[in-house]
Design a protein around this nucleic acid. Structure first.
Length: 278
DNA sequence: CACGAGACCTGTTCGC
DNA sequence: TGCGAACAGGTCTCGT
């Protein structure tokens, strides 16, 4: 579920709350319940709970696919991985299936981390750089210029699909938004980064931003049994559309395997060898 | 440095 | 119908 637009959607929801749910901001943590110990990456589960108790949540931020809560002098950081979700829930007697970590708030609400596949992780640290230090730039950061992005592409010789999914290269793209970005840019997933022309590189950055912004506007994607209320799945051009017609040229969308990930593209609009078209 | 395979997990869908 | 295989929004580690 969670790539940059989904994480950003969760962040905004926690900050704003709604008519039934309060904002997470300025909520005090009265207790902590850890239901799956491996969810807590650092420090030890016991220490994690002890340090968190009594703190107040001051800020809710995002970096790449990470959610970052400033809790007084510490940072509580989550990575949702494949199936994680964070939401506010009214205090109740029974846990839900797959609840892994619960922060009991003094207001009577809970911040619940629910994660079917148990891949998600939480950290508590005074220095967020110890967790986020290796991340590449934020794709939507306006200080990431065409020129800088071009230099990044030239500095590596890697296939575009795995390169864009590499969080140390660029932070926030996952399988869905990478496939959609490459389609929007008209670039084959196996094109090698260092072979891109200046024009192709600029087009790719613009495509990434367009796709991410659209994803955020649609509140992310909701697919499979994990429904979050997002709507971007209704705007997929190639992702999960193998065999269906390309919305641009009508050719059948292809699916292949690149770096062990399902990869969707239009063989006509995203030719393997670039022929000069517009 | 680049890349592929395996591990970590549970749940759903696909193929015989 | 049943049952195992394949697959799923991610990342880490190891080997070549």
């Amino acid at each position: 579920m969670p790539e940059l637009p989904e994480v950003e959607t969760i962040r905004r929801g926690l900050v704003a709350g709604d008519s039934f749910t309060p904002s997470l901001l300025e909520q005090r943590v009265s207790d902590v319940s850890i239901l799956w110990e491996k969810t807590v990456a650092r420090p030890s589960p016991r220490e994690f709970a002890r340090l968190l108790r009594g703190t107040t949540i001051r800020e809710v931020n995002r970096r790449g696919k990470y959610l970052l809560f400033r809790v007084d002098d510490l940072f509580l950081i989550f990575h949702l991985r494949m199936s994680g979700d964070l939401s506010m829930r009214r205090q109740r007697a029974e846990n839900a299936p797959h609840d892994r970590l619960i922060l009991f708030l003094a207001s009577g609400w809970n911040l619940v981390f629910n994660d079917t596949r148990k891949f998600g992780r939480a950290w508590l640290t005074p220095d967020p750089q110890t967790v986020l230090g290796t991340l590449g730039p934020e794709p939507l950061d306006p200080t990431l210029t065409d020129k800088a992005f071009r230099a990044m592409m030239l500095s590596r010789s890697r296939q575009l699909k795995p390169l864009l999914m590499d969080q140390s290269f660029l932070a926030g793209l996952g399988n869905i938004y990478t496939d959609e970005s490459l389609f929007a840019a008209g670039l084959h997933p196996l094109r090698v980064s260092s072979t891109l022309t200046e024009e192709e590189s600029s087009k790719l950055l613009a495509a990434i931003r367009m796709v991410l912004n659209k994803g955020i506007r649609e509140h992310g994607s909701s697919i499979d049994w994990v429904y979050r209320g997002g709507n971007f799945q209704n705007h997929f051009q190639v992702y999960q559309r193998a065999g269906e017609t390309c919305p641009r040229c009508g050719a059948p969308v292809q699916k292949s395997r690149v770096g062990q990930r399902g990869t969707h593209f239009c063989p006509v609009c995203q030719p393997e060898r670039s022929s000069q078209n517009v």
